[in-house]
Design a binder for these strands. Structure first.
Lengths: 218, 218
DNA sequence: CGTACCTTTGATGTGAATCAAGAGTAGTGG
DNA sequence: CCACTACTCTTGATTCACATCAAAGGTACG
Protein backbone atom coordinates (compact mmCIF):
# COMPACT_ATOMS: atom_id res chain seq x y z
CA UNK A 1 0.00 0.00 0.00
CA UNK A 2 2.95 2.26 0.66
CA UNK A 3 3.89 1.81 -2.94
CA UNK A 4 0.62 3.21 -4.30
CA UNK A 5 0.64 6.73 -5.70
CA UNK A 6 -1.17 8.16 -2.74
CA UNK A 7 1.34 7.07 -0.16
CA UNK A 8 4.46 7.01 -2.26
CA UNK A 9 7.31 8.75 -0.52
CA UNK A 10 5.76 8.19 2.84
CA UNK A 11 8.06 8.30 5.86
CA UNK A 12 7.91 5.74 8.62
CA UNK A 13 6.34 8.12 11.08
CA UNK A 14 3.63 9.09 8.64
CA UNK A 15 2.94 5.50 7.91
CA UNK A 16 2.34 4.74 11.54
CA UNK A 17 0.09 7.78 11.87
CA UNK A 18 -2.04 6.68 8.96
CA UNK A 19 -2.32 3.02 9.79
CA UNK A 20 -4.00 3.82 13.09
CA UNK A 21 -7.09 4.77 11.15
CA UNK A 22 -7.13 1.90 8.73
CA UNK A 23 -8.93 -1.36 9.02
CA UNK A 24 -8.75 -4.64 7.17
CA UNK A 25 -12.06 -6.02 6.07
CA UNK A 26 -13.14 -9.14 4.28
CA UNK A 27 -16.20 -9.06 2.12
CA UNK A 28 -17.91 -11.98 0.49
CA UNK A 29 -18.97 -12.20 -3.11
CA UNK A 30 -21.78 -9.88 -4.11
CA UNK A 31 -21.65 -7.92 -0.90
CA UNK A 32 -22.13 -4.19 -1.24
CA UNK A 33 -19.31 -2.08 0.16
CA UNK A 34 -21.09 1.21 -0.25
CA UNK A 35 -24.16 2.39 -2.12
CA UNK A 36 -24.61 5.19 -4.60
CA UNK A 37 -25.58 8.51 -2.95
CA UNK A 38 -24.61 7.55 0.58
CA UNK A 39 -22.29 10.04 2.30
CA UNK A 40 -18.58 9.53 1.75
CA UNK A 41 -16.79 8.58 4.93
CA UNK A 42 -14.14 6.10 3.90
CA UNK A 43 -11.86 5.27 1.04
CA UNK A 44 -10.65 1.80 0.16
CA UNK A 45 -7.65 -0.07 -1.11
CA UNK A 46 -7.93 -3.52 -2.64
CA UNK A 47 -5.65 -6.16 -1.15
CA UNK A 48 -7.01 -9.00 -3.22
CA UNK A 49 -10.10 -9.84 -5.17
CA UNK A 50 -12.01 -7.54 -7.47
CA UNK A 51 -14.47 -4.75 -6.81
CA UNK A 52 -16.90 -3.42 -9.38
CA UNK A 53 -18.13 0.15 -9.35
CA UNK A 54 -21.59 0.46 -10.85
CA UNK A 55 -24.37 2.94 -11.48
CA UNK A 56 -27.99 2.02 -11.18
CA UNK A 57 -30.48 3.62 -13.52
CA UNK A 58 -34.02 4.63 -12.64
CA UNK A 59 -35.20 1.46 -14.38
CA UNK A 60 -32.92 -0.60 -12.18
CA UNK A 61 -30.40 -1.49 -14.87
CA UNK A 62 -26.87 -1.73 -13.67
CA UNK A 63 -23.93 -0.35 -15.60
CA UNK A 64 -20.37 -1.20 -14.58
CA UNK A 65 -18.24 1.93 -14.58
CA UNK A 66 -15.00 0.36 -13.50
CA UNK A 67 -13.42 -2.81 -12.19
CA UNK A 68 -10.85 -2.32 -9.44
CA UNK A 69 -8.17 -4.94 -8.92
CA UNK A 70 -5.51 -5.53 -6.24
CA UNK A 71 -3.22 -2.63 -5.35
CA UNK A 72 -5.64 0.09 -6.33
CA UNK A 73 -7.60 2.68 -4.42
CA UNK A 74 -11.18 3.51 -5.02
CA UNK A 75 -13.51 6.26 -3.80
CA UNK A 76 -10.53 8.43 -2.97
CA UNK A 77 -11.48 10.94 -5.65
CA UNK A 78 -14.85 11.74 -4.16
CA UNK A 79 -13.63 12.35 -0.65
CA UNK A 80 -13.81 16.10 -1.12
CA UNK A 81 -17.08 16.39 -2.86
CA UNK A 82 -19.65 16.24 -0.13
CA UNK A 83 -22.23 14.77 -2.50
CA UNK A 84 -21.95 11.15 -1.50
CA UNK A 85 -20.53 8.28 -3.52
CA UNK A 86 -21.44 8.60 -7.19
CA UNK A 87 -21.36 4.82 -7.67
CA UNK A 88 -22.13 1.55 -5.93
CA UNK A 89 -19.20 -0.61 -4.92
CA UNK A 90 -19.87 -4.33 -4.95
CA UNK A 91 -17.46 -7.17 -4.27
CA UNK A 92 -16.92 -9.21 -7.41
CA UNK A 93 -15.96 -12.44 -5.73
CA UNK A 94 -14.51 -12.56 -2.22
CA UNK A 95 -12.25 -9.62 -1.43
CA UNK A 96 -9.98 -8.29 1.23
CA UNK A 97 -9.90 -4.53 1.53
CA UNK A 98 -8.19 -1.94 3.63
CA UNK A 99 -10.41 0.96 4.56
CA UNK A 100 -8.96 4.35 5.41
CA UNK A 101 -10.95 6.80 7.44
CA UNK A 102 -11.72 9.84 5.32
CA UNK A 103 -11.69 12.51 8.00
CA UNK A 104 -8.30 11.44 9.27
CA UNK A 105 -6.90 11.18 5.79
CA UNK A 106 -8.00 14.74 5.08
CA UNK A 107 -6.33 15.87 8.25
CA UNK A 108 -3.14 14.15 7.18
CA UNK A 109 -3.29 15.68 3.73
CA UNK A 110 -3.87 19.14 5.16
CA UNK A 111 -0.47 19.03 6.82
CA UNK A 112 1.46 18.99 3.59
CA UNK A 113 0.53 20.32 0.20
CA UNK A 114 2.90 17.87 -1.48
CA UNK A 115 0.70 15.05 -0.30
CA UNK A 116 -2.23 16.82 -1.90
CA UNK A 117 -0.33 17.12 -5.14
CA UNK A 118 0.24 13.40 -5.35
CA UNK A 119 -3.40 12.84 -4.71
CA UNK A 120 -4.48 15.38 -7.28
CA UNK A 121 -2.40 13.78 -9.93
CA UNK A 122 -3.96 10.43 -9.07
CA UNK A 123 -7.40 11.94 -9.37
CA UNK A 124 -6.48 13.55 -12.65
CA UNK A 125 -5.48 10.18 -14.03
CA UNK A 126 -8.90 8.85 -13.23
CA UNK A 127 -10.51 11.87 -14.81
CA UNK A 128 -8.45 11.29 -17.90
CA UNK A 129 -9.60 7.68 -18.04
CA UNK A 130 -13.22 8.69 -17.77
CA UNK A 131 -12.88 11.10 -20.67
CA UNK A 132 -11.32 8.28 -22.68
CA UNK A 133 -14.27 6.08 -21.71
CA UNK A 134 -16.72 8.66 -22.92
CA UNK A 135 -15.33 8.70 -26.36
CA UNK A 136 -14.96 4.97 -26.42
CA UNK A 137 -18.68 4.82 -25.69
CA UNK A 138 -19.66 7.38 -28.30
CA UNK A 139 -17.06 7.47 -31.04
CA UNK A 140 -16.59 3.71 -31.24
CA UNK A 141 -19.06 0.91 -31.69
CA UNK A 142 -19.37 -2.29 -29.72
CA UNK A 143 -16.93 -4.35 -31.77
CA UNK A 144 -14.27 -1.66 -31.51
CA UNK A 145 -14.72 -1.38 -27.79
CA UNK A 146 -14.38 -5.14 -27.39
CA UNK A 147 -11.21 -5.18 -29.50
CA UNK A 148 -9.84 -2.29 -27.47
CA UNK A 149 -10.59 -4.19 -24.30
CA UNK A 150 -8.85 -7.29 -25.60
CA UNK A 151 -5.81 -5.32 -26.69
CA UNK A 152 -5.62 -3.51 -23.36
CA UNK A 153 -5.85 -6.69 -21.31
CA UNK A 154 -3.72 -8.98 -23.42
CA UNK A 155 -0.54 -10.51 -22.04
CA UNK A 156 1.79 -13.28 -23.13
CA UNK A 157 1.25 -16.56 -21.24
CA UNK A 158 3.70 -19.36 -20.34
CA UNK A 159 3.61 -20.92 -23.79
CA UNK A 160 4.29 -17.60 -25.50
CA UNK A 161 0.79 -17.12 -26.90
CA UNK A 162 -1.03 -13.85 -26.33
CA UNK A 163 -3.98 -14.35 -24.05
CA UNK A 164 -6.67 -12.35 -22.30
CA UNK A 165 -8.18 -13.66 -19.12
CA UNK A 166 -11.56 -12.13 -18.32
CA UNK A 167 -11.34 -10.48 -14.95
CA UNK A 168 -15.02 -11.08 -14.25
CA UNK A 169 -17.99 -13.09 -15.59
CA UNK A 170 -18.79 -12.25 -19.17
CA UNK A 171 -21.96 -10.39 -18.26
CA UNK A 172 -19.97 -8.01 -16.08
CA UNK A 173 -17.35 -7.45 -18.76
CA UNK A 174 -20.13 -6.84 -21.27
CA UNK A 175 -21.57 -4.11 -19.10
CA UNK A 176 -18.12 -2.59 -18.66
CA UNK A 177 -17.74 -2.45 -22.44
CA UNK A 178 -21.22 -1.06 -22.77
CA UNK A 179 -23.00 -3.91 -24.53
CA UNK A 180 -25.39 -6.70 -23.54
CA UNK A 181 -24.11 -10.18 -22.65
CA UNK A 182 -25.81 -11.65 -25.72
CA UNK A 183 -24.03 -9.22 -27.97
CA UNK A 184 -20.69 -9.96 -26.36
CA UNK A 185 -21.22 -13.65 -26.98
CA UNK A 186 -22.05 -13.00 -30.62
CA UNK A 187 -19.10 -10.71 -31.17
CA UNK A 188 -16.68 -13.20 -29.67
CA UNK A 189 -18.15 -15.87 -31.88
CA UNK A 190 -17.83 -13.69 -34.96
CA UNK A 191 -14.20 -12.88 -34.21
CA UNK A 192 -13.26 -16.51 -33.70
CA UNK A 193 -14.98 -17.44 -36.97
CA UNK A 194 -12.73 -14.90 -38.61
CA UNK A 195 -9.79 -16.65 -36.98
CA UNK A 196 -8.65 -13.61 -35.04
CA UNK A 197 -9.16 -15.16 -31.65
CA UNK A 198 -9.89 -18.46 -29.96
CA UNK A 199 -12.23 -18.59 -26.99
CA UNK A 200 -11.81 -21.11 -24.17
CA UNK A 201 -14.18 -20.28 -21.34
CA UNK A 202 -12.89 -17.13 -19.67
CA UNK A 203 -9.67 -17.22 -21.67
CA UNK A 204 -9.28 -15.65 -25.09
CA UNK A 205 -6.23 -16.48 -27.21
CA UNK A 206 -5.25 -13.87 -29.71
CA UNK A 207 -3.70 -15.01 -32.93
CA UNK A 208 -2.23 -11.69 -33.92
CA UNK A 209 -2.52 -8.53 -31.86
CA UNK A 210 -1.52 -6.33 -34.77
CA UNK A 211 -4.25 -7.93 -36.83
CA UNK A 212 -6.83 -6.92 -34.21
CA UNK A 213 -5.62 -3.34 -34.44
CA UNK A 214 -6.17 -3.51 -38.18
CA UNK A 215 -9.75 -4.74 -37.91
CA UNK A 216 -10.59 -1.89 -35.61
CA UNK A 217 -10.00 0.51 -38.48
CA UNK A 218 -12.33 -1.16 -40.98
CA UNK B 1 -12.76 35.38 -10.89
CA UNK B 2 -12.15 35.74 -7.18
CA UNK B 3 -15.60 34.38 -6.65
CA UNK B 4 -14.93 31.08 -8.44
CA UNK B 5 -14.38 27.99 -6.33
CA UNK B 6 -10.68 27.94 -6.97
CA UNK B 7 -9.97 31.37 -5.62
CA UNK B 8 -12.77 31.67 -3.12
CA UNK B 9 -11.50 32.96 0.20
CA UNK B 10 -8.52 34.57 -1.40
CA UNK B 11 -6.80 37.36 0.47
CA UNK B 12 -5.73 40.59 -1.18
CA UNK B 13 -2.07 39.73 -1.06
CA UNK B 14 -2.65 36.34 -2.66
CA UNK B 15 -4.73 37.91 -5.33
CA UNK B 16 -1.96 40.27 -6.29
CA UNK B 17 0.54 37.42 -6.32
CA UNK B 18 -1.61 35.39 -8.65
CA UNK B 19 -2.60 38.10 -11.03
CA UNK B 20 1.04 38.74 -11.95
CA UNK B 21 0.99 35.49 -13.85
CA UNK B 22 -2.32 35.91 -15.57
CA UNK B 23 -3.02 37.29 -18.97
CA UNK B 24 -6.15 38.39 -20.76
CA UNK B 25 -6.54 36.99 -24.23
CA UNK B 26 -9.12 37.42 -26.93
CA UNK B 27 -9.77 34.60 -29.32
CA UNK B 28 -11.90 34.67 -32.41
CA UNK B 29 -14.55 32.16 -33.36
CA UNK B 30 -13.25 28.71 -34.22
CA UNK B 31 -9.75 29.42 -32.97
CA UNK B 32 -8.10 26.58 -31.12
CA UNK B 33 -6.91 27.44 -27.63
CA UNK B 34 -5.06 24.20 -27.08
CA UNK B 35 -4.95 20.85 -28.81
CA UNK B 36 -5.45 17.36 -27.46
CA UNK B 37 -2.20 15.72 -26.27
CA UNK B 38 -0.14 18.90 -26.11
CA UNK B 39 1.64 19.47 -22.78
CA UNK B 40 -0.34 21.28 -20.11
CA UNK B 41 1.14 24.65 -19.28
CA UNK B 42 -1.78 26.93 -18.63
CA UNK B 43 -5.28 26.87 -17.25
CA UNK B 44 -8.07 29.17 -18.36
CA UNK B 45 -11.01 31.09 -17.04
CA UNK B 46 -13.82 32.25 -19.32
CA UNK B 47 -14.67 35.96 -19.09
CA UNK B 48 -17.24 35.89 -21.84
CA UNK B 49 -18.16 33.78 -24.80
CA UNK B 50 -18.24 30.00 -24.93
CA UNK B 51 -15.51 27.40 -25.25
CA UNK B 52 -16.10 23.84 -26.37
CA UNK B 53 -13.95 20.96 -25.23
CA UNK B 54 -13.81 18.20 -27.80
CA UNK B 55 -12.16 14.87 -28.53
CA UNK B 56 -11.11 13.87 -32.00
CA UNK B 57 -11.36 10.24 -33.02
CA UNK B 58 -8.93 8.41 -35.27
CA UNK B 59 -11.48 8.82 -38.07
CA UNK B 60 -11.48 12.56 -37.52
CA UNK B 61 -14.94 12.76 -35.97
CA UNK B 62 -15.31 15.33 -33.29
CA UNK B 63 -17.24 14.74 -30.09
CA UNK B 64 -18.05 17.64 -27.77
CA UNK B 65 -17.29 16.67 -24.19
CA UNK B 66 -18.29 19.90 -22.53
CA UNK B 67 -19.30 23.50 -23.17
CA UNK B 68 -17.72 26.05 -20.86
CA UNK B 69 -19.49 29.36 -20.28
CA UNK B 70 -18.51 32.62 -18.53
CA UNK B 71 -17.20 32.41 -14.99
CA UNK B 72 -15.87 28.89 -15.28
CA UNK B 73 -12.39 27.40 -15.33
CA UNK B 74 -11.25 24.74 -17.70
CA UNK B 75 -8.14 22.57 -17.94
CA UNK B 76 -7.47 23.11 -14.26
CA UNK B 77 -8.11 19.46 -13.48
CA UNK B 78 -5.34 18.19 -15.73
CA UNK B 79 -2.64 20.47 -14.42
CA UNK B 80 -1.17 17.68 -12.31
CA UNK B 81 -1.30 14.88 -14.75
CA UNK B 82 1.70 15.36 -16.94
CA UNK B 83 0.00 13.61 -19.84
CA UNK B 84 -1.04 16.67 -21.79
CA UNK B 85 -4.51 18.02 -22.34
CA UNK B 86 -7.00 15.18 -22.84
CA UNK B 87 -9.23 17.37 -25.05
CA UNK B 88 -9.12 20.12 -27.64
CA UNK B 89 -10.36 23.55 -26.59
CA UNK B 90 -11.94 25.59 -29.35
CA UNK B 91 -13.59 29.01 -29.13
CA UNK B 92 -17.29 28.70 -29.87
CA UNK B 93 -17.83 32.27 -31.04
CA UNK B 94 -15.55 35.13 -30.01
CA UNK B 95 -14.28 34.79 -26.44
CA UNK B 96 -12.28 36.61 -23.85
CA UNK B 97 -10.26 34.41 -21.56
CA UNK B 98 -7.91 34.82 -18.65
CA UNK B 99 -5.00 32.44 -18.72
CA UNK B 100 -3.21 31.48 -15.54
CA UNK B 101 0.30 30.11 -15.69
CA UNK B 102 0.30 26.53 -14.46
CA UNK B 103 3.73 26.44 -12.87
CA UNK B 104 3.06 29.52 -10.79
CA UNK B 105 -0.34 28.30 -9.80
CA UNK B 106 1.18 25.07 -8.57
CA UNK B 107 3.69 27.03 -6.58
CA UNK B 108 0.90 29.03 -5.02
CA UNK B 109 -1.08 25.92 -4.21
CA UNK B 110 1.95 24.28 -2.63
CA UNK B 111 2.01 26.97 0.02
CA UNK B 112 -1.26 26.00 1.59
CA UNK B 113 -3.03 22.69 1.65
CA UNK B 114 -6.38 24.41 2.12
CA UNK B 115 -6.04 25.85 -1.34
CA UNK B 116 -5.45 22.35 -2.62
CA UNK B 117 -8.56 21.14 -0.87
CA UNK B 118 -10.73 23.68 -2.62
CA UNK B 119 -9.24 22.69 -5.89
CA UNK B 120 -9.71 18.99 -5.24
CA UNK B 121 -13.34 19.44 -4.47
CA UNK B 122 -13.72 21.37 -7.72
CA UNK B 123 -12.04 18.55 -9.60
CA UNK B 124 -14.21 16.00 -7.86
CA UNK B 125 -17.29 17.84 -9.05
CA UNK B 126 -16.11 17.51 -12.59
CA UNK B 127 -15.38 13.85 -12.07
CA UNK B 128 -18.86 13.38 -10.72
CA UNK B 129 -20.31 15.08 -13.78
CA UNK B 130 -18.36 12.83 -16.11
CA UNK B 131 -19.66 9.73 -14.37
CA UNK B 132 -23.18 11.11 -14.79
CA UNK B 133 -22.43 11.69 -18.46
CA UNK B 134 -21.30 8.12 -18.89
CA UNK B 135 -24.53 6.70 -17.71
CA UNK B 136 -26.52 9.23 -19.64
CA UNK B 137 -24.69 7.98 -22.73
CA UNK B 138 -25.21 4.31 -21.98
CA UNK B 139 -28.30 3.88 -19.84
CA UNK B 140 -30.45 6.42 -21.68
CA UNK B 141 -31.34 6.74 -25.33
CA UNK B 142 -31.16 9.84 -27.49
CA UNK B 143 -34.61 11.15 -26.73
CA UNK B 144 -34.02 10.85 -23.00
CA UNK B 145 -30.74 12.67 -23.24
CA UNK B 146 -32.34 15.49 -25.18
CA UNK B 147 -35.14 15.79 -22.65
CA UNK B 148 -32.61 15.79 -19.84
CA UNK B 149 -30.68 18.52 -21.60
CA UNK B 150 -33.82 20.61 -22.04
CA UNK B 151 -34.82 20.17 -18.42
CA UNK B 152 -31.33 21.04 -17.23
CA UNK B 153 -31.12 24.19 -19.32
CA UNK B 154 -34.66 25.48 -18.96
CA UNK B 155 -35.36 28.83 -17.34
CA UNK B 156 -38.36 31.10 -17.10
CA UNK B 157 -38.21 34.04 -19.52
CA UNK B 158 -39.67 37.59 -19.23
CA UNK B 159 -43.17 36.51 -20.15
CA UNK B 160 -43.19 33.71 -17.62
CA UNK B 161 -42.89 30.88 -20.14
CA UNK B 162 -40.25 28.22 -19.68
CA UNK B 163 -37.63 28.46 -22.37
CA UNK B 164 -34.33 26.87 -23.36
CA UNK B 165 -31.87 28.89 -25.37
CA UNK B 166 -29.33 26.71 -27.19
CA UNK B 167 -25.89 27.76 -26.04
CA UNK B 168 -24.34 26.75 -29.37
CA UNK B 169 -25.38 25.84 -32.92
CA UNK B 170 -27.59 22.78 -33.04
CA UNK B 171 -24.87 20.58 -34.47
CA UNK B 172 -22.66 21.30 -31.48
CA UNK B 173 -25.45 20.63 -29.03
CA UNK B 174 -26.21 17.40 -30.87
CA UNK B 175 -22.65 16.24 -30.41
CA UNK B 176 -22.79 17.20 -26.73
CA UNK B 177 -25.89 15.05 -26.30
CA UNK B 178 -24.28 12.25 -28.25
CA UNK B 179 -26.44 12.17 -31.38
CA UNK B 180 -26.14 13.37 -34.98
CA UNK B 181 -27.55 16.76 -36.04
CA UNK B 182 -30.15 15.07 -38.26
CA UNK B 183 -31.39 13.04 -35.34
CA UNK B 184 -31.61 16.10 -33.14
CA UNK B 185 -33.71 17.83 -35.76
CA UNK B 186 -36.04 14.86 -35.99
CA UNK B 187 -36.40 14.52 -32.23
CA UNK B 188 -37.23 18.20 -31.81
CA UNK B 189 -39.78 17.89 -34.57
CA UNK B 190 -41.34 14.83 -32.97
CA UNK B 191 -41.60 16.52 -29.58
CA UNK B 192 -43.23 19.63 -31.01
CA UNK B 193 -45.72 17.46 -32.90
CA UNK B 194 -46.63 15.96 -29.56
CA UNK B 195 -47.16 19.48 -28.27
CA UNK B 196 -44.54 19.20 -25.55
CA UNK B 197 -42.34 21.96 -26.92
CA UNK B 198 -42.32 24.74 -29.49
CA UNK B 199 -39.17 25.43 -31.48
CA UNK B 200 -38.25 28.93 -32.68
CA UNK B 201 -34.77 28.93 -34.12
CA UNK B 202 -32.34 28.49 -31.24
CA UNK B 203 -35.11 28.93 -28.69
CA UNK B 204 -37.26 26.10 -27.40
CA UNK B 205 -40.41 26.88 -25.42
CA UNK B 206 -41.52 24.19 -23.04
CA UNK B 207 -45.22 23.77 -22.44
CA UNK B 208 -44.91 21.78 -19.26
CA UNK B 209 -41.64 20.81 -17.63
CA UNK B 210 -43.30 18.18 -15.49
CA UNK B 211 -44.77 16.66 -18.63
CA UNK B 212 -41.29 16.30 -20.11
CA UNK B 213 -40.17 14.45 -17.00
CA UNK B 214 -43.10 12.09 -17.51
CA UNK B 215 -42.23 11.29 -21.11
CA UNK B 216 -38.71 10.41 -20.09
CA UNK B 217 -40.10 7.46 -18.16
CA UNK B 218 -42.11 5.92 -21.00
C1' DC C 1 -28.96 -35.17 -8.98
C1' DG C 2 -31.51 -31.20 -9.28
C1' DT C 3 -31.78 -26.19 -8.85
C1' DA C 4 -29.83 -21.90 -10.07
C1' DC C 5 -26.98 -19.17 -12.69
C1' DC C 6 -24.12 -18.20 -16.64
C1' DT C 7 -23.67 -18.51 -21.53
C1' DT C 8 -25.00 -19.35 -26.17
C1' DT C 9 -28.20 -19.20 -30.13
C1' DG C 10 -32.11 -17.80 -32.90
C1' DA C 11 -35.91 -14.61 -34.43
C1' DT C 12 -37.53 -10.08 -34.39
C1' DG C 13 -37.79 -5.09 -33.51
C1' DT C 14 -36.08 -0.39 -33.21
C1' DG C 15 -33.22 3.68 -32.61
C1' DA C 16 -30.11 6.10 -34.76
C1' DA C 17 -26.39 6.51 -38.42
C1' DT C 18 -25.79 7.17 -43.18
C1' DC C 19 -26.63 8.78 -47.75
C1' DA C 20 -28.69 12.18 -50.42
C1' DA C 21 -31.25 16.35 -51.49
C1' DG C 22 -33.56 20.34 -50.70
C1' DA C 23 -34.75 24.77 -47.72
C1' DG C 24 -33.38 28.48 -44.86
C1' DT C 25 -30.04 31.94 -43.51
C1' DA C 26 -26.00 34.69 -43.64
C1' DG C 27 -22.07 36.93 -45.03
C1' DT C 28 -19.36 38.76 -49.44
C1' DG C 29 -18.64 41.49 -53.21
C1' DG C 30 -19.92 43.61 -57.53
C1' DC D 1 -29.51 46.04 -53.47
C1' DC D 2 -29.26 41.81 -55.51
C1' DA D 3 -26.82 37.72 -57.06
C1' DC D 4 -23.21 34.13 -55.22
C1' DT D 5 -21.26 31.29 -52.15
C1' DA D 6 -21.27 28.89 -47.91
C1' DC D 7 -23.34 27.32 -43.91
C1' DT D 8 -26.66 25.49 -40.92
C1' DC D 9 -30.88 23.19 -40.64
C1' DT D 10 -34.56 20.09 -42.16
C1' DT D 11 -36.59 15.89 -44.57
C1' DG D 12 -36.83 11.50 -46.70
C1' DA D 13 -35.19 6.69 -47.81
C1' DT D 14 -32.31 3.15 -46.46
C1' DT D 15 -29.16 0.41 -43.65
C1' DC D 16 -27.10 -1.47 -39.57
C1' DA D 17 -25.85 -2.40 -35.02
C1' DC D 18 -27.59 -3.60 -31.05
C1' DA D 19 -31.42 -4.53 -27.84
C1' DT D 20 -35.08 -7.43 -26.78
C1' DC D 21 -37.64 -11.60 -26.32
C1' DA D 22 -37.50 -16.39 -25.91
C1' DA D 23 -35.55 -20.79 -25.21
C1' DA D 24 -32.11 -24.18 -24.97
C1' DG D 25 -27.34 -25.93 -23.50
C1' DG D 26 -23.57 -25.69 -19.87
C1' DT D 27 -21.58 -25.51 -15.57
C1' DA D 28 -21.32 -25.02 -10.66
C1' DC D 29 -22.77 -26.14 -6.33
C1' DG D 30 -25.53 -27.59 -2.44
Amino acid sequence: MRRSYLFAGLEDGDYAAISVHTQMLEVSSGQMIFAQNTPVSTIYWVVDGMVKLTRTSAQGDEKVIELIGPGRFFAEAVLFMGNGYPVNAVAQGACRLISVDGAHLKEWLAQDAQRCFRMMSGISMRLHKLVADIDRLTLMKGTDRLLQYLIDHSEPDDTGRTVVEFEAPKQVVASRIGIKPETLSRLLHKLSEQGCIEVQGARVFIADVEHLRQIKLD
